[in-house]
């Protein structure tokens, strides 16, 4: 991996001036992805925060080819671009080596785009799907998705007098993609830029489909000061809420060892979306969430044992 100093000299392929919120993790992740690529890429993106903040006509923040068609079909659309590339390369109309990256938020990946993603991965397209998981439909004003964590307040899982935020645990999307038996699957967080970029480079080098699930903290939906994005992402890792790991040809590996596991409850305390859970009488829910994180972490460690 190049040093930060070297990376700072590389051309930025996502220009400044886009309209993402201060403290948004999406552009941070995208800049890391594009810096890691080291070869021509074509980007496809689902409808969502990233698309609406980077492509307001007549402007575009993208210095690489970019396509957005709809919400639920980023994977299918990019699989079409990749198919065209293979067809035209075979017929001698394109000579360059190009890699294809589909992007989607958690809504566009875990929910409405699940089928399209599953289909594209099963068909074995030579493409990378990257989910930018900020844990809710943030673009439409913070509604629950199947990626929203248990207990979180959103506008469609509100913390009320009777119901205390989202009642269900988050879908394990990374596991769903591992179950597709594709060559490369990983989880990352932009807080750990070297880990994220190394994973993108592995995905780019993969011949076939790859999936990376990136946790992208959302200061607005999660409720924390915008300057804390990197820190809150780091704590998601140390609390084992979002372990950094990869599965390469079926082999699991934790890519960032946890020296001292921190409490998921402490992490939640820093976010307004969980505020209601810290009122007296809700300790049971917090304990339940901690127990689930512990259980998942044990399970993952078990899978990583050779």
């Amino acid at each position: 991996m190049a040093s930060l100093k070297e990376l700072s000299k590389k051309q930025e392929l996502l220009s400044s001036g886009h309209r993402a919120c201060a403290g948004c993790a999406h552009p941070i992740a995208i800049r890391q992805i594009l810096m890691a690529a080291n070869m021509p890429v074509v980007i496809g993106c689902a409808t969502g925060c990233l698309e609406v903040t980077t492509t307001i006509f007549p402007y575009t923040a993208w210095k690489v080819p970019f396509i957005h068609s709809a919400f639920e079909n980023s994977a299918a659309t990019v699989s079409g671009v990749e198919t065209a590339y293979r067809a035209l390369k075979k017929r001698g109309k394109v000579d360059k080596d190009i890699k294809f990256i589909a992007l989607g938020g958690d809504g566009g990946t875990y929910d409405i785009g699940f089928q399209s993603l599953s289909g594209a991965m099963e068909r074995g397209h030579n493409m990378i799907y990257i989910c930018l998981d900020n844990g809710a439909y943030m673009n439409t004003g913070i509604q629950r998705s199947s990626a929203t964590p248990r207990g979180a307040h959103t506008t469609t899982s509100p913390a009320g007098k009777v119901i205390l935020g989202k009642r269900e645990f988050k879908k394990d999307m990374t596991a769903c993609m591992i179950a597709h038996n594709i060559p490369y699957v990983a989880q990352a967080v932009p807080s750990m830029w070297n880990d994220l970029m190394a994973k993108v480079q592995k995905a780019i080098a993969t011949d076939g489909p790859a999936f990376i699930n990136i946790l992208t903290p959302c200061r607005l939906g999660w409720g924390y000061p915008p300057e804390d994005t990197i820190e809150i992402g780091k704590e998601a890792i140390t609390a084992c809420y979002w372990p950094l790991y990869e599965v390469e040809d079926g082999k699991y590996k934790i890519t960032h060892k946890i020296k001292e596991k921190t409490s998921v409850i402490d992490w939640m305390k820093k976010q307004v979306r969980f505020k209601h859970l810290f009122k007296s009488g809700n300790e049971g829910i917090l304990a339940e969430i901690q127990a689930r994180v512990d259980q998942d972490w044990e399970k993952l460690q078990g899978l990583c044992v050779v």
């Binding site: 299918a76 079409g80 671009v81 198919t83 065209a84 289909g119």
Partner: peptide
């Protein structure tokens, strides 16, 4: 024929593949 043939998982995806493909110049 030497066309690339993609059997998708739905018509929605079939048209989405067509859109990506046509935008790529195929």
């Amino acid at each position: 024929v030497d066309a690339e043939f993609i059997a998708t998982e739905s018509e929605h995806s079939a048209m989405s593949v067509c859109i990506g493909s046509a935008a790529a110049g195929a």
